[in-house]
Design a protein around this nucleic acid. Structure first.
Lengths: 190, 190
DNA sequence: GTCTATATATTGATAGAC
DNA sequence: GTCTATCAATATATAGAC
């Protein structure tokens, strides 16, 4: 398949469509027919690009990974100190407030769903956590945290996940903001 | 239906069976046939007690509520100071370490799943969060936290959820323990 | 209250004409 | 690469004899 071909566009349309549906309805909660309807394509057409629904999910996870990675690379190119980068991370949480409150954290909720009964797919989804964990650990090392860096990265990830879960469960934007402010305060005092 | 009748036992068997399956496989991930097989009952027999699968889930949520409530009442009857009670709460998190690492927090993962596309059922599941939130708020008020009490209760709930998500995603008991120790430390310094 | 048989819709997936 | 038709399995749910 050539770059810029029609096929590549169609494939990308399928992935972006599925990415939104999986986020809003969950993976199991989204049927193949949902993807057919939302994309406006024909069933057979989608199966031409992806042999199974699982393959679509893997492509969706790859798409998430690319987007988040681009964001992290963008921050790294900016000449700001590590603490500012950590604060930028904490801001991502409330970046799309409405979406997070309505559908939860796209990474956390996907992993939580898949870890129940599709651990094979969860291993793929976990790569999204790894991406942030590794990036955060480097930032903490730059802050002089040395051996603590890895633990601090996981701690920060956990704090962010906890905030996302509670804000999602209670559909509460104010709670999301106040908890995020506390997290930013924790970063600033480090 | 009379107390102690055979029907009540059968009904209880169905609920306990479904409770375990919903926890281990998720609600959507558990089929009616799974409940039939695991309980050893006949399809029609189960439908005799519950009109729909949703009704089974509501009964399961009620069962969770009763068990957690009994636990909180038990703690309240013990003559220990509020801080000790908060520490007891933090210990519940690691109470069944293996289970939490393997299947996640039963309350959090259920709410996260249902919030995606079954918000009606999630409202029922949220009552489990409310149970702990209210109990924690009273404990913080007893600690003299006044108006902060409600926010502290939600903060602690979020911290616990974050720890559960990360420990579950990474299947890491050591992480669960170290993060819980940090949380206990936070409580002791309050 | 127990047990069997079946209805009906939806699922993910395939075959093959164009 | 597009489009239609359909498959086999599984889902929840129901009817009704015993």
């Amino acid at each position: 398949m050539n770059i810029g071909s029609k096929g590549e566009k169609t494939r990308g349309d399928i992935v972006n469509c599925a990415k939104r549906l999986f986020y809003e309805q969950g993976y199991e909660g989204t049927s193949f027919s949902d993807i057919v309807e939302a994309s406006g394509l024909y069933r057979g057409n989608i199966y031409h690009y992806f042999k199974t629904k699982d393959e679509i999910l893997k492509a969706v996870i790859g798409q998430h990974f690319e987007e988040f990675n681009d964001l992290l690379v963008k921050w790294d190119k900016q000449d700001i100190d590590p603490r500012e980068k950590l604060l930028a991370f904490s801001t991502v949480i409330i970046g799309r407030q409405g979406e997070l409150v309505e559908y939860g954290c796209p990474i956390g909720s996907l992993n939580t769903e898949l870890a129940k009964d599709r651990r094979d797919l969860q291993h793929a989804a976990r790569s999204l956590f790894d991406l942030f964990r590794d990036w955060l650990a480097v930032r903490f090392r730059e802050l002089g945290k040395g051996e603590e860096a890895e633990a601090l990265a996981l701690h920060l990830l956990g704090r962010a996940q906890g905030i996302a879960v509670i804000a999602h469960v209670y559909q509460d934007e104010a709670l999301l903001k106040s908890e995020t402010a506390q997290l930013r305060n924790w970063i600033e005092k480090l």
